[in-house]
Design a protein around this nucleic acid. Structure first.
Lengths: 200, 200
DNA sequence: GGAATAAACTAACAGTTGTTAGTTTTGCCA
DNA sequence: TGGCAAAACTAACAACTGTTAGTTTATTCC
């Protein structure tokens, strides 16, 4: 028990360093020897704990994907208005960008370097997420809570805008995390909310 | 004359292929041998026309940057309202994403692999662009044309949202380029326009 | 304390990387 | 048609890549 716990801990350390390294250099420009150096060991020793470099990327991308799916699962069960739901999705994305920055950064940027069949699985998960998100938006439009906009453009814009926090992250001075969350959320919500008509 | 024209043409061919290759695989995962194969020649032959792989990336990033600076130069000279100016900036960014997709894609994604001193120069240009864009937004807020939002968040959101077209590009079916431009522009403008008060 | 196992090591593999040097072929102009 | 330069070629370089095999050192358990 103690043994396997320790082994897992060491593996987790490697994964954490990999996240940092990948986020700094990019997946392809990060070598196992460099990762090993960061860990204070030889490259070959890494393979006592992990299976491959690819596995490290896999873990990063799929753990992030799982977190978003989980949040959406819970949200769909709740009986909030579509306005509240969308706001919560936006805030969750922002929080993920803020709290798991490096992992999000790598996942957003380097998922293309996943190999099959994981690449297809990842793309599939992403598509599915977008579909479920779109469904919420469309229901909101039906109820006239949201303005009549192209749903795909709306979803695309929200997801991309939040991803833009990656630029903010390097110049935190100008605005705090809390302010950023509120400002960005309200800016995005202002773009989609129906201002012309009182909802039914 | 004819000779140098031809040489330039060949160089341009290589650069064009490099854009495609980099956009498909990423800068680091693209090898000169692979690029040469696409050109129907040996890797070493490329060096009759170009100086280095790095130069190819440099050309991509800085030609894009120059295009944006040029557009902003012209826009600043004009005497349109800030609303019109911002809308034009948004539309220009969208058009660049649509018309120069691969170049934009590489530039947005791989500029980090520029080496010094070009990396710093590039970052500097980008910062400068954001400042000038911010100045327009702030003037619009002063005039109460725009809602009172954090300028930095606004600029960040616009730039990031437009970048999101990279996802759209692979699934053109759902909406045409023209519609996309109009929908995205109006969505973003709706987020920043002042709806509470008639502007002076 | 001795056996067992985990986790580090060294050495090497087979392949790829960007780039250079030197040579041969190609195409144009006199 | 001969000469010259452009642009292709082959061969090679030194470095680096992810990963495996085999060995040695640390740690844990009875």
């Amino acid at each position: 028990m103690a043994i396997s716990t320790k082994k897992i801990a060491r593996k987790a350390q490697i994964q954490a360093k990999a996240v940092s390294l990948f986020s700094e250099k990019g997946y392809n420009a990060s070598s196992m020897r460099h990762l090993a150096e960061n860990m204070g060991m030889e490259a070959a020793s890494l393979y006592n704990h992990i299976n491959s470099k690819q596995d490290l990327l896999h873990e990063i991308c799929f753990s992030i994907a799982a977190a978003f799916v989980k949040q959406l699962d819970e949200l769909e069960k709740s009986n909030q208005t579509e306005v509240e739901k969308v706001e919560q999705i936006i805030r969750f994305h922002i929080q993920m960008m803020l709290e798991q920055f490096e992992k999000m950064y790598v996942s957003n940027r380097d998922w293309k370097h996943l190999k099959e069949p994981y690449l297809s699985a990842y793309v599939g998960e992403r598509r599915n997420y977008e579909k479920r998100f779109s469904a919420i938006i469309e229901k909101g439009i039906e109820k006239q809570l949201f303005a009549e906009r192209n749903t795909y453009v709306t979803v695309l814009t929200i997801l991309s805008a939040v991803r833009g926090i990656e630029f903010w992250h390097k110049s935190k001075k100008r605005i705090s995390a809390g302010e950023l969350e509120n400002e960005l959320t309200s800016l995005l919500m202002a773009g989609i909310i129906n201002t012309r008509q009182v909802p039914i």
